[in-house]
Design a protein around this nucleic acid. Structure first.
Lengths: 176, 176
DNA sequence: CATAATTTTCATTAAATACTGAAACTACGA
DNA sequence: TCGTAGTTTCAGTATTTAATGAAAATTATG
């Protein structure tokens, strides 16, 4: 089609920008560009897509598309679906923002918080009761960090396990 | 000193582990290893340190030490101090965990949240009122994300600007 | 002002991470 | 059982990011 309606063109441009930039942002939060782009693509797609469509839309290799689709399935941000009479695997994104948030919070906790807590625990334990100025300073700092991070972790769990509506109520209290 | 007391040895081991592992964790949250290690080193140091001491302790180059010390000062996680009669710059870490938390939250917001909000705003604006199934799907998703992220951002501000004591009270409510 | 101590910059090198493309594998229908 | 369409893996390559080390700039001191 040579001539495209202005509205269609606008949408296409906006969507392309969204996908490209979401990919760039992804690298900021420690997920690779392709993974973030696929996520953006599927979140804003009106229908499920197969691997080849993803490859085509983002101009990436099959291996790259495949790896990142699987990773997104692992996270729970997208799911594989089967279409009757089609041998290919299709994928669709979770679109509920609260769900997306809780999934990401859970994953971040697993990768960023839990190892930190484990380390802090270990270091606090190993230096408990040691004498001397240096040991005191070290132990206190590590202990303080441990308590704070453990606490923050519990809070995060609590909030992430709420129903969307309840979380909104809580937020209203805080902001109000 | 050839022979070291057991207690000193234990402390040294624990501190070395803490610094090494904190560095590894740092890479998970998108800050480079050296920066995280310097932070760990200074947080658990009983006194301020100069660049050469940092280089020595972590076995890193002058350039690397310098760059990351400056970056930590920028963040506000450490500060430069002057010692009478010594030309060298010394550095000491902020040790209060609530302060550390608010500084990190602020920086993360600036780097991760704000650009996302700007993008979502732009994309929602550009597709407002467009006709067609695809445009509707795109606009709704982007709008939902925008609202959620804006909201989360406000919450984060609110919590980070609280005094430690108040935050604890609030947390007690949530956990209670 | 000269010089010595220290900090800062930056071109180069090294390390970590992401991507490609082709081969191996799997499942299915003829 | 063979051929085909699709999926999965992975060695090699490209890209991105971090670290080095030496030179340039800055600052204090006699």
């Amino acid at each position: 089609m040579k001539i495209m309606k202005v509205a269609e063109d606008k949408l296409k441009k906006a969507r392309e920008e969204f996908i490209a930039q979401w990919g760039a942002l992804g690298t900021q939060w420690g997920i690779n560009r392709t993974m973030a782009q696929i996520h953006a693509l599927l979140m804003t797609s009106p229908s499920a897509m197969c691997t080849d469509e993803v490859m085509e839309e983002l101009s990436v290799s099959r291996g790259n598309a495949h790896t990142n689709l699987k990773e997104l399935v692992n996270w729970g941000l997208i799911r594989m679906i089967v279409i009757r009479g089609d041998r290919r695997d299709f994928y669709e994104a979770e679109k509920d923002v609260w769900q997306i948030f809780t999934i990401i919070a859970k994953e971040r906790k697993r990768r960023e918080i839990e190892p930190a807590v484990a380390l802090l625990n270990r270091c606090a334990e190993e230096t408990k009761g040691l004498k001397g100025e240096d040991a005191k300073v070290f132990h206190k700092q590590v202990k303080d960090l441990e308590e704070f991070v453990t606490f923050a972790s519990k809070m995060s769990d609590r909030v992430a396990s709420m129903k969307h509506g309840l979380a909104i109520q809580l937020a209203a209290k805080i902001l109000g």
